[in-house]
Design a protein around this nucleic acid. Structure first.
Lengths: 170, 170
DNA sequence: CAAGATACGTCAACATGGCTGACATATCTC
DNA sequence: GAGATATGTCAGCCATGTTGACGTATCTTG
């Protein structure tokens, strides 16, 4: 596991000397890493006649049951027309159900059915397989570094929304 | 910069305790990080009337001048028909030129024109801005961890191809 | 309580960028 | 000279994004 740091000319002088190659390396690894991870589930999705757009919705609904349509729209950053198509298909296939919001009856709260949860779990297992293998190879130290860099890529304005995924709704 | 490691119950016992939440965190950060990074260049591309597909081609041609069409196809992992459309547009706009291969006259070697190189540099500047900010915030240690994890996501069979981007063609 | 804002849905048309299948040409290799 | 390889291209299809316009139910506020 070779270290890639600079030839330690002046340690601590500049905190990080940003060479073009380090940036390109990040861009490429991010591209290939992301695409290869998502490839892991394409076959399974194709078997169901679903696409990646469906998976993204399933994923976030699984992650945060009783998510509202509006919250999902903000997460996916697409138009409501695009999402509408996807949610309609998921609903027609009995993968997702909606119920009217208790506090605000205009809202629709999204949940996976048992069938939807089973599918999401199967897809998630693929992601887990790939990502946990990468975690294990890289080691815990690297994993926290991986998280830190990626957190820095999420704009301040979106960060709270992303972090809130890890909290249960009350 | 809080550390996220486990409560240090048995240091070194299991190299990495893979909880579902750690996997989901990686999936989400990869998704948001990747999309937000690519968003950085969308506005610039739109101004030119180009799409992301064009940028990917420009990027790899910039990265490795005299790349062949076949090599670019393998990098992008799309069909030649899809790539053909993109390359034709880049050629029509004088962003890319091709020349016949010296060793194998069936090959076409791809290069950016000055105009193409200028555009790629402008787009790259956006990526650099975002990514270098994330690098600086996270620190050098995190950056090498970031690379290690992502390398682990690229399947063995593709890894050489990705690493070869960092070498000059001879 | 009436008026306006908000949450959601939907119709229609269009753009981008993937895909398959079929076929042509030039060139290399044996 | 025969077959493999690198590239290009025609034609049509599909998934998933977009804009614009409009409708209804419900909440909020003066």
């Amino acid at each position: 596991m070779a270290d890639i740091s600079r030839p330690s000319a002046s340690p601590g002088a500049s905190p990080l000397f940003l060479r073009e190659d380090e940036i390109r390396r990040g861009v490429e690894l991010l591209y290939f890493g992301y695409t290869r991870l998502t490839n892991a589930i394409d076959q399974e999705l194709a078997k169901q006649g679903l696409g990646r757009a469906h998976h993204r919705a399933l994923y976030f609904i699984a992650r945060q049951p009783d998510l509202t349509v509006g919250e999902l729209l903000r997460l996916l950053a697409i138009t409501k027309q695009s999402l509408g198509r996807v949610l309609k298909e998921l609903h027609d296939r009995d993968l997702v159900v909606t119920k009217t919001g208790a506090l605000d009856r205009r809202q629709k709260l999204l949940r996976l059915t048992d069938k939807g949860a089973a599918l999401e779990a199967e897809l998630f297992a693929q992601l887990r397989e790939k990502l946990s293998a990468a975690y294990v190879t890289a080691g815990q130290e690297s994993v926290t570094g991986f998280w830190h860099v990626l957190e820095g890529l999420v704009p301040e304005s979106d960060r709270q929304m992303v972090f809130d995924l890890r909290k249960d709704k009350t």
